[in-house]
């Protein structure tokens, strides 16, 4: 048996059909991910673990080939049909991008769910110092039988047959399935929420951002602190589950929050919900593959929150 297999498929829908059978990982950028939505919904309903990678480009449509974060809703709030969630990991460096591959696989297999790395065109093109995690060999056949007893690989020892399906026409059973999915999502929310806090202890203003915009905003923080403006950073690492408790805690004493994204305002909805609209939450977005610069964000911060 091949230790690992890389295959180039004719299109995204075919790739997703292969993933259904434990092909396990595929990557694409936004338009390709739209094409995969059917498969994502089926994966979630069939409880088959998989890792999907979307390096976002600017849409809608074919749009541009440069960076965007406009697939936040698609990744975190659905995309495909039905009630499901993916664990959405947002890397903001090349190192994180490398580390999240292993993490994504582990989480997917732990919860029998779909996990996704939601990167963007800038992080995708970036070269940085990176320490590659150690390669792990593919599970042996015996390990697969032990660790994935649901796997469809032949009834060895005439065990009861496994059927991977998303179809259930008995309404009560389908409702039961949905409750099981939801229980799994609650479990993930409890255990797997991740975020990074920078200089939040003493800050008057908080910037929330993920991926590329978080990196840009870190420089904005430096510029602001040099001017005596105390700015902190809240960077969600999991976009779903969204780290709302951590944000609420970090935002306790701030005068306002600026949410920076490469879209028209998507994560900002989760930010507002997390802080229960108890303080001003402003959004700043760029589109079309454009990325704001650090000084641009500092001006926005002053305009929208400080000098208001």
């Amino acid at each position: 048996m091949n230790d690992k297999v890389t295959l180039m498929k004719g299109n995204e829908a075919l790739a997703m059909a292969m993933i259904r059978y434990g092909a396990v990982c595929t990557s694409t950028s936004s338009p390709g991910f739209s094409l995969m939505q059917e498969g994502v919904s089926y994966l979630a309903a069939s409880e088959v673990p998989a890792l999907l990678i979307n390096v976002q480009r600017g849409g809608p449509g074919l749009g541009t080939i440069h960076a965007s974060q406009a697939d936040y809703f698609q990744a975190c709030k659905g995309g495909g049909h039905g009630d499901y969630h993916m664990i959405v990991l947002a890397p903001s460096s090349v190192q994180e991008m490398a580390d999240m591959v292993a993490l994504g696989f582990d989480l997917a297999f732990k919860y029998r769910c779909v996990s996704m790395i939601l990167a963007d065109g800038t992080i995708g093109q970036l070269m940085e110092k990176v320490v590659l995690p150690e390669q792990r060999p593919r599970r042996t056949d015996d390990e697969i039988r032990q660790q994935c007893p649901w796997a469809v690989n032949g009834r060895k020892g005439m065990r009861p047959s496994n059927v991977v399906t998303s179809l259930e026409l008995d309404d009560d059973k389908m409702e039961e399935n949905n409750w099981r999915f939801q229980a799994c999502y609650r479990e993930i929310e409890k255990n797997e929420t991740r975020c990074e806090l920078i200089d939040t202890e003493d800050c008057d203003y908080l910037i929330t951002a993920f991926g590329t915009t978080a990196r840009v905003a870190m420089k904005t923080m430096e510029l602001a602190r040099a001017e005596g403006i105390k700015v902190g950073m809240f960077r969600p690492i999991t976009l779903w589950p969204f780290p709302e408790k951590q944000l609420r805690e970090a935002a306790k004493n701030v005068k306002g929050i600026l949410c920076v994204e490469l879209n028209a305002g998507q994560m900002v909805e989760d930010v507002k919900l997390a802080v229960e609209c108890k303080m001003p939450v402003e959004h700043y977005g760029r589109f079309g593959g454009n990325v704001p610069t650090p000084d641009e964000l500092l001006n926005v911060l002053k305009e929208k929150l400080i000098n208001k």
Binding site: E128, R215, A217, K219, E222, P294, D295
Partner: peptide, 9 residues
């Protein structure tokens, strides 16, 4: 540690 890879100046 490098913060922003996107710069203006």
């Amino acid at each position: 540690r490098i913060s922003s890879p996107v710069l203006n100046t």
